[in-house]
Simulated assay, not measured.
Amino acid sequence: MENHEHNNDRRLHHHDHHHHHSHLETGTVNGLNLVLTMLLNLLITVAEIAGGLLAGSLSLVSDALHNLSDAAAVAISLAALRFSRREATLEKTFGFQRLEILAALFNSAVLIAISLLLFKESATRLLHPQAINSSMMMVVGALGLLANTLAALLLRRDAGKSLNVRSSYLHLFSDALSSVAVVAGGIAIYFWQITWIDPLLTILIGLYVINESYEIVADTVQILMEGTPKGIKLEEIYTSIKSLPGIRDLHHVHVWQLGERQINFEGHIDLEQDISISESEKLRRQVEALLRDKFGIEHIMLQMEYEGCTGRGLLSCII
């Protein structure tokens, strides 16, 4: 028989346990900080595009495009966070938690795409250097640095609570670094007329952003592919459950991550004896307590059976 987690025994334990296997903290993200961050990025985008075109600085324009993607990323993050808290429906029984994961994947993929496009323009600039107004480049770059630093500080605390907000924070942090590079490049051009440093900085900034964004892309793809969550070792779970008295085997196991913090587990428990339903309930509660306390898994569905599968494997069940 199938037993879902929503029973009184599980509710007694749910309030005081956190998923220690998740690499993100639990908590509520501050929506006001997201709004302020978005407005800051829109303002600096306008300033940097105007300044970049007037100064002839590609690195300023690249910084502006990153800031524009930041504003979009934060807007998507805000929308995704709000939708993800909605209750499950008959059409979407798991609710909307995956929206945060999709948003994080989209944000990071866009940032990688922008960096690749700027590589092409940077190569052109390296072959054909252009005159640059270094004074304007430094002033606008300094303004961008100030705005990006402030925006990053606004999201720093919440970056540990949401993979989606973490991707937005990464946007802002990388932009703050690129603003430092822009200011340094402006100084080099002003004193030594090294115009090729502008496209070179653009390439270096892009490489950094791609490297950092790849980790988020990998994490989100792993969740969307319903891969085994980080920190969960199926062999250890198998050994621990089989060691419980009265249990012969564990098979047909699936472990996946619905959102950022919710880990789901389902499996078939083969009993050593053909016992009553009330006795099997005691064993089921023991298995749930083990999964909850040792492995940090809260959302559990177990099927208790006696010689129910003729061909068994940890990941399979042949009736």
Results as ranks from 00 to 15, higher is better:
residue 283 L to G: 06
residue 319 I to H: 15
residue 130 Q to W: 05
residue 222 Q to M: 14
residue 105 L to I: 07
residue 164 N to H: 09
residue 261 R to L: 15
residue 247 I to N: 02
residue 24 L to K: 04
residue 301 M to Y: 09
residue 6 H to I: 04
residue 102 L to Y: 04
residue 142 A to E: 04
residue 256 W to T: 06
residue 296 G to S: 02
residue 204 L to P: 06
residue 206 G to H: 03
residue 225 M to T: 10
residue 79 A to F: 10
residue 32 L to V: 14
residue 310 T to V: 15
residue 214 Y to G: 11
residue 147 A to K: 03
residue 130 Q to G: 15
residue 316 S to H: 08
residue 300 I to H: 08
residue 125 R to C: 04
residue 249 D to C: 09
residue 4 H to C: 14
residue 202 T to W: 05
residue 101 I to R: 02
residue 66 H to D: 01
residue 275 I to Y: 06
residue 152 A to K: 01
residue 244 L to R: 04
residue 106 F to M: 13
residue 203 I to T: 01
residue 65 L to H: 12
residue 87 E to C: 11
residue 55 A to Y: 05
residue 83 F to Q: 14
residue 105 L to G: 03
residue 63 D to V: 11
residue 109 A to L: 15
residue 217 V to G: 02
residue 272 E to K: 14
residue 45 T to E: 02
residue 302 L to G: 01
residue 130 Q to C: 08
residue 10 R to P: 06
residue 50 A to F: 14
residue 120 K to S: 15
residue 115 S to I: 06
residue 101 I to E: 07
residue 65 L to G: 13
residue 190 Y to M: 10
residue 3 N to W: 15
residue 167 S to T: 03
residue 17 H to S: 02
residue 190 Y to Q: 15
residue 237 I to A: 04
residue 47 A to F: 10
residue 50 A to C: 13
residue 272 E to I: 05
residue 268 H to F: 05
residue 163 L to Y: 11
residue 127 L to M: 13
residue 103 A to L: 00
residue 248 R to N: 06
residue 301 M to F: 09
residue 292 R to A: 10
residue 272 E to L: 12
residue 254 H to E: 03
residue 92 K to G: 08
residue 20 H to G: 02
residue 219 D to G: 02
residue 121 E to M: 12
residue 307 E to P: 05
residue 6 H to R: 13
residue 234 L to G: 09
residue 72 A to R: 12
residue 210 I to E: 06
residue 312 R to I: 07
residue 175 D to C: 04
residue 83 F to L: 13
residue 143 L to V: 13
residue 290 L to G: 06
residue 38 M to D: 05
residue 65 L to T: 05
residue 279 E to I: 04
residue 304 M to Y: 00
residue 24 L to G: 06
residue 47 A to D: 05
residue 73 A to D: 09
residue 2 E to G: 11
residue 276 S to L: 07
residue 240 S to M: 10
residue 28 T to W: 09
residue 266 E to F: 04
residue 29 V to S: 07
residue 142 A to M: 08
residue 75 A to F: 12
residue 113 A to Y: 10
residue 111 L to M: 13
residue 161 K to D: 08
residue 218 A to P: 00
residue 63 D to E: 03
residue 127 L to D: 12
residue 89 T to P: 10
residue 193 Q to A: 12
residue 277 I to A: 14
residue 276 S to M: 00
residue 191 F to G: 10
residue 240 S to A: 15
residue 301 M to P: 07
residue 12 L to Y: 13
residue 99 L to A: 15
residue 273 Q to D: 09
residue 88 A to L: 12
residue 33 N to V: 05
residue 54 L to N: 11
residue 305 E to C: 08
residue 296 G to T: 01
residue 145 L to T: 00
residue 168 S to C: 12
residue 305 E to W: 03
